[in-house]
Design a protein around this nucleic acid. Structure first.
Lengths: 250, 250
DNA sequence: GCTTTTCTTGACAGTTTCTTAACATTGTAA
DNA sequence: TTACAATGTTAAGAAACTGTCAAGAAAAGC
């Protein structure tokens, strides 16, 4: 599996077709409604969002905008509306591409893959780890299997606890602000609702820290956010991707 | 000017049209041949490359691949060839977008701008992950991680202390007035409230200076403000010069 | 349906950080 | 040297932040 895609489209044939094209390489989750789709995006955190903004009938443009307020996830608009205005609106709202129906199947695939490549490059530049495991001291987290062990002993985490911990682990060594964590884990949400994050971190610490009062893994940066120690296995795997553009030295 | 665009297209009317659409916001350099275009790309280092890979005699796909070997500059293919194969080939070769002729003018603009936005984000992420440190003597400050070390030992700073120190480090070597620092850290505020700044600097010095009476890092310029020594990480060290290939043979 | 787990909220306490004010010290100009 | 302004230091209360608990709501599992 190359990743997870959320498809939001009220045309069932469209969805079925896209499923056929993509399901061998991607996990597909679909919805016919904006409301449900929105919930899927915030709970499942897909790698790509495909949406038919149904311009101008329904307000898909503001949907795209509102996702963009809290997520950088690539959005591809796929619509029967071939007008220039529809495409421009979607792209300006934050969509990464606008594809007209009926589309060529291989072209859809190619555009999705291109999107994924670009986003991976962006995340890599941001220091997001692509390693399969996080290891630090006695703590080990398996990103793919949702498994966490402390000193070889398996630890059960709830969904949100795992989301928080794996987020910290993907960005290991960096301080993540409360706001960033909240938006990443809960999606759109009142940013000042830090209480729920605090409770989750307390519960997490109870499960993985020997002495929650003197944390060994999850550190608090007062007034800013949380961080976790650098992944011990990511250093070797720091891949040297070629530089994107030549730059002047002046 | 928003940037520089190299257009490689043998169709003069196309080039003229694109010039008309884009020249108010971008510097346009164009060529009708691959060879010349290639030289332009390597010498002018544009922000975006627009290319019609559908040259009658030459292979535009290998051109794109060849540019991709050493540059990540966004490439937009614009071609009269509407086939799926043409689009898929271009995108898989490394093009960021494939636009069919005849195109909508505003859509072309929007797609170019979207490309620029994405690429800026990528470069910003790369820049941040490189030029993220201030170093002077034993003092080291990591702008992104709110982390400060003195002689390798981590030092804990409060949010405001870090704000002040990083402000000084960002403007290293220059004297920052009390007024400027206060406004930067606390926002609009009674300008004569320098007391709070003095307290913060005292606390900062306690944490990072060996002998606060004879500061090694944070210097007072009487009657003006504070300053910190110039960052020892020079700009040349930050951006390594990638190799450049100047010939294109096909 | 029921039971169990997880999520969310609000209250509260302990801790850290911020801010103020008083006082000490240093620098500067007459 | 003296007087005065500017800067440094300290301490204490205020404010903000963080960690914890418990209870009800919601969701998941059976």
């Amino acid at each position: 599996m190359n990743g997870k895609i959320v498809i939001i489209d009220s045309d069932r044939r469209s969805v079925k077709l896209m499923r056929n094209i993509l399901s061998d390489r991607y996990e597909i989750i679909s919805s016919a409604s904006f409301g449900e789709g929105y919930l899927m995006i915030s709970s499942d955190l897909p790698d790509i969002i495909i949406i038919d903004p149904q311009f101008p009938k329904s307000d898909g443009i503001s949907f795209i905008k509102s996702v963009r307020e809290w997520s950088d996830c690539p959005i591809i608009a796929v619509s029967e509306n071939g007008t220039e205005h529809a495409a421009v609106s979607a792209i300006n709202a934050g969509a990464d591409d606008y594809i007209r129906k009926p589309f060529f199947q291989n072209e859809l695939s190619a555009r999705i893959e291109a999107c994924m490549r670009r986003f991976s490059a962006l995340e890599a530049a941001r220091g997001v780890s692509k390693a399969a495991y996080y290891v630090s001291g006695g703590l080990r987290l398996d990103f793919n299997n949702y498994a966490v062990t402390v000193d070889e002993k398996p630890v059960h985490l709830t969904k949100n606890e795992f989301k928080i911990l794996s987020l910290l682990c993907r960005h290991s060594g960096k301080v993540l602000t409360y706001d960033f964590i909240i938006k990443s884990v809960w999606g759109p949400r009142n940013a000042d609702s830090t209480g729920i994050l605090r409770v989750n971190v307390t519960n997490l610490r109870k499960k993985i820290e020997k002495d929650p009062l003197h944390p060994e893994y999850i550190f608090t940066e007062n007034g800013i956010g949380y961080k976790i120690a650098q992944n011990e296995i990511s250093r070797q795997q720091l891949s040297a991707k070629p530089h994107r553009r030549l730059t002047y030295n002046n």
